[in-house]
Nucleic acid binder design. Structure first.
Length: 677
RNA sequence: GCCGAGGUAGCUCAGCUGGUUAGAGCGCAUGAUUCAUAAUCAUGAGGUCGGCGGUUCAAGCCCGCCUCUCGGUACCA
């Protein structure tokens, strides 16, 4: 086992096409920040790396839609994100961006290094090219008719109507969304990272040597490796990104997934000339904090890149979190179903620690979790205010009242005093053990337990009563209570840095010294503390209601948007319409197609014949309930084999805004085989 | 369908290599208390550990089947 001298912590680079929300925070930035603050307090050599991920097609699309440049888009979001992180207290050593000059150089060098070593495959393929715009088209820039469901408006990579992932070259009637022209296929060359060649290594490295990774991470890796790894293109034909640094690669950039993780390296390089020490010295430990959507990149793809390059360390652990939901629904940027960090910071001024606490105490460590405003309020009022803030306030107020703020001289300790002082060490120890294992939820709970210990100590000793009868005893009691208070000022620092600092100021403690954490004497007798000040404020119902109203408003806006029907397709002639032969028919039999989720095999009496149709409606209808129903069926659609069944025709369905399907059929019984027109 | 992760008190979660009456916090009830932002402290109620079957002296934990949730993947004429 190599001795660890330093730690490099990376946090997933937020994509610069929108601000940061609580899901990002809970999954990545809050735990990473807690961990790094903890290591720093222990005096360890550690760096926290972050930055904005600014390349990729979605950003170019957003720029085009808004009539601005991609650089404008990323400039806008990069500054919002960077500022909100800073205000929130995520203690990055560097927060960079992938549009920086250093990153272009680093990513180019990295590519060049793998290229020179022959680690890439070169492959030519057919891609669509827009002759009017003079450029190759990314999949998202092409729309056309889906070859599966025959709906218009499918994208080159996916049909949003039926959900199928596509190759752009499969689309019928493709159109460029840039110029509207019909693109032509051209041959283009790309480089591929042969992940399949690294499979044996990955199997050994992850499945054998990293059994200690979190179950969700380990399991997902195993799933992917067992599924078989494919070569992955590392370049694309696009003009936004890091140019591929080889001859004859004009108009090609590095694929965003390839350049983004290299952003960690670039950022480190911007930070320190010693960057190689953090990336290549085997005595450095590399940790990636990410969300579960990023597991494949950080456990399979990026390590393969690093391994192929040959001089870099591989990650030691990848403590990926699950997802956070919001009030029962999935967080969504496009649907504006989120609590945005920059808005939170305005709505809840100086309450960074409240959000940090709630997201830590309710972190999605082992499974998806739900954030609710009611829980947010309860945790603030019942835990931060009532347990932690209240205990601190009690001990400081009493000290002011009895001793003018001077830490008293303890008299002889009783057993209960000794047990309580021992308890400080126990909770400090438990907190640290949990932090060492990335169990942040448990860690913050143990830290809170120290405050509970304080409340219990005061309740049991009742100094406000003894002050009248046994003043000497009260000196001991207040001494002990103050040691707990001072310990809290240290122990809470990783979790609640703002409150911890305020508390240290209140106690006139000066700099945090983690070595004192868990000690029985942190404040010396005779030391003067300041006036009591509330660490946390109660949050009123009205504030919570305002947030709920805000969410309700975006829900309404979404519903309104969903009600807007898609624009009409271009006109066709009557002849074109009459080519379609639609008839009424009756479902005679229906059964689920084995091993599928959506498919029903239907037998239809079309009035002409009885035929079999496979239809993707199983999610909405039980087979037995639709037998006997009349339907409309397109009878002259070319037959197609689906899951080994010849499907002869297509049942017409209407799709509701939420994706629900319903039959399009006559209102009253009509003879089977009647023409629909 | 296949792969992965989950399903433990009303809510959020712990439960080590299977071992005595299954735990914590919040919420709830009762009592104590007033230094404190009606905060705190104590006590209590509440669980057929998703379901069925099996292995075992013993299963929340192991095995098989089923079921629900989340993610990935296949299917959608």
């Amino acid at each position: 086992m190599t001795k660890i001298k330093r730690t490099l912590v990376t946090t997933a680079l937020p994509y610069a096409n929108g601000p940061v929300h609580i899901g990002h925070l809970a999954g990545v930035y809050v735990p990473a920040d807690i961990y790094v603050r903890y290591l720093r307090l222990k005096g360890e050599d550690v760096l926290l790396i972050g930055g904005s991920d600014e390349h990729g097609v979605p950003i170019t699309l957003k720029a085009r839609n808004e009539g601005i440049t991609p650089q404008d888009v990323v400039d806008k979001y990069h500054s919002i994100i960077k500022q909100s992180f800073a205000d929130f207290g995520i203690s990055f050593d560097v927060y960079s961006r992938t549009s920086s000059k250093t990153h272009y150089e680093t990513a180019s060098e990295f590519f060049k290094s793998l290229y020179d070593k022959g680690e890439f495959l070169e492959k030519e393929s057919q891609q669509y090219y827009d002759e009017e715009a003079g450029q190759f088209l990314a999949d998202r820039y092409i729309t056309g008719t889906c070859p599966h469901c025959h709906k218009d408006g499918a994208y080159g990579d996916q049909c949003e109507s039926c959900g199928t992932s596509l190759n752009a070259t499969d689309l019928l009637h493709p159109r460029s969304t840039i110029s509207g022209s019909t693109p032509v296929q051209r041959t283009t060359k790309h480089w591929y990272l042969p992940l399949d060649k690294h499979e044996a290594f990955l199997r050994q490295w992850i499945l054998e040597e990293h059994k200690e990774w979190k179950p969700n991470v380990y399991g997902q890796c195993k799933s992917w490796i067992d599924l078989g790894l494919q070569p992955r293109a590392v370049s694309r034909d696009l003009d936004w990104g890091v140019p591929v640094p080889v001859e004859g690669a004009e108009g090609k950039v590095l694929y965003v997934w390839f350049d983004a993780p290299i952003g960690y390296i670039s950022a480190t390089r911007e930070l320190t000339p010693d960057w190689e020490k953090y990336w290549k010295d085997p005595e450095t430990r590399l940790l990636h904090f990410i969300g579960k959507d990023n597991i494949v990149f950080h456990c399979i793809v990026f390590p393969s890149m690093l391994k192929a390059e040959g001089t870099y360390n591989l990650p030691d652990n990848v403590p990926a979190n699950e997802f956070l939901n919001l009030e029962g629904d999935k967080i969504s940027t496009s649907r504006n179903w989120a609590v945005w960090l920059h808005e939170y910071l305005l709505d809840f001024k100086d309450k960074q620690d409240v959000l940090r606490y709630v997201l830590t105490a309710n972190a999605p460590e082992t499974k998806d979790n739900d954030f609710t405003w009611k829980d947010f309020q309860a945790r603030n009022n019942n835990e931060l205010v009532a347990i932690f803030g209240n205990f601190v306030n009690r001990s400081v107020v009493l000290t002011q009242k009895y001793y003018n703020g001077v830490v008293p001289q303890p008299d002889e300790l009783q057993d209960f005093d000794r047990e309580t002082l021992e308890g400080i060490g126990v909770f400090a120890q438990k907190t640290q053990e949990a932090l060492d294992q990335f169990k942040f939820r448990e860690a913050v709970k143990e830290a809170m337990n120290l405050a509970r210990l304080g409340n219990k100590y005061l309740a049991d000793t009742e100094p406000w009563k003894l002050i009248k009868t046994d003043a000497a005893r009260v000196e001991t009691i207040m001494y002990v209570a103050l040691q707990i208070t001072a310990n809290l000022a240290i122990l809470m620092e990783p979790f609640l840095p703002f409150a911890a600092e305020k508390l240290r100021k209140m106690l006139n403690m000066g700099q945090v010294d983690w070595k004192l954490c868990g000690q029985k004497q942190v404040l010396q007798t005779g030391h003067s503390i300041g006036e009591a000040e509330l660490l946390f404020q109660k949050i009123e119902d009205s504030e919570i209601q305002a947030q709920l109203d805000k969410l309700q408003a975006s829900k309404k806006a979404n519903e309104a948007a969903a009600r807007t029907a898609n624009p009409a397709k271009e006109n066709i002639s009557f002849d074109e319409f009459s080519k379609m032969d639609i008839r009424t028919g009756t479902i005679l039999e229906a059964e689920k197609v084995a091993k599928t989720k959506k498919l029903l095999k239907l037998k239809i009496d079309t009035g002409l014949d009885q035929r079999t149709v496979v239809s993707g409606i199983a999610e909405f209808f039980e087979p037995e309930t639709i037998v006997g129903r009349q339907v409309s069926i397109l009878v002259n659609l070319a037959p197609r084999n689906i899951k080994g069944i010849e499907s002869q025709g297509m049942i017409l369905m209407a799709e509701d805004a939420d994706g629900r399907l319903d039959f399009v059929a006559p209102q009253s019984p009509v003879k089977n085989g009647s023409e629909v027109r």
